[in-house]
Amino acid sequence: MIRNFAVFLLLLGLGAIFLHLLDGYVPASELNQTARYYAEHTAQDLGAANIVTAIIVTYRGLDTLGEVTVLFLASTIIGMVLAQGSKRQRALQRKLPASGELLTTGSRLLVPLILLFGAYVFVNGHLTPGGGFQGGAIIASAALLVLLTDPLKRFSHKLIALVESISGLVFVGVGVLGMLLAGGFLDNRILPTGEFGALFSAGAIPLIYSFVGLKVGAEFTSMLTNLAETEKS
């Protein structure tokens, strides 16, 4: 009872603060200085059409490196916490009812297409909405479809780890190359910026974002796989 009352008081206070914020909110009519800089300089300096991608991959590339590191840590911790449970129950795999004809055939048809779509999304990240994170999630959803069709399917952990570490290494390697050949860490101008709006443009952004996509896809897949492997008899 007292607990509920305290929760109520806390929410009331928070609500009052939010109401005050909402009341005093004046929408900006002009871009602030940072946004203005990005809007003016992205096209000439980096050659990327999607400014959000330019910010994520180049202007704040170090943030993205930290982000994929956090994701890597999360998937590693999940694997570590769940590892013990799966070893014990390996022998007791029950026979599951076969998944339906529709699901089996449909997944056989759709999985390559989903993988292709994921690759399309992250390769075109600098031109259209989308990019490594979205493409990685789409790739992980292909793995999810495979797991739905056959819950006892086991993906090779070695393969996932290999894809993950190679893309991580390439990401950092391209960043260091940027330091040697261009302006600084993760600078995209180590490759020619090319024609604005073409697929092979914006320097190293498509390259970096593709490897971010592979890394994120591998991390999400490893999370899903680790959770799926807790399947008990």
Binding site: L31, T34, A35, A39, E40, I51
Partner: peptide, 9 residues
């Protein structure tokens, strides 16, 4: 661009 787009940050 400066007059047409919203804040990307």
């Amino acid at each position: 661009a400066v007059a047409r787009i919203i804040d990307p940050v």
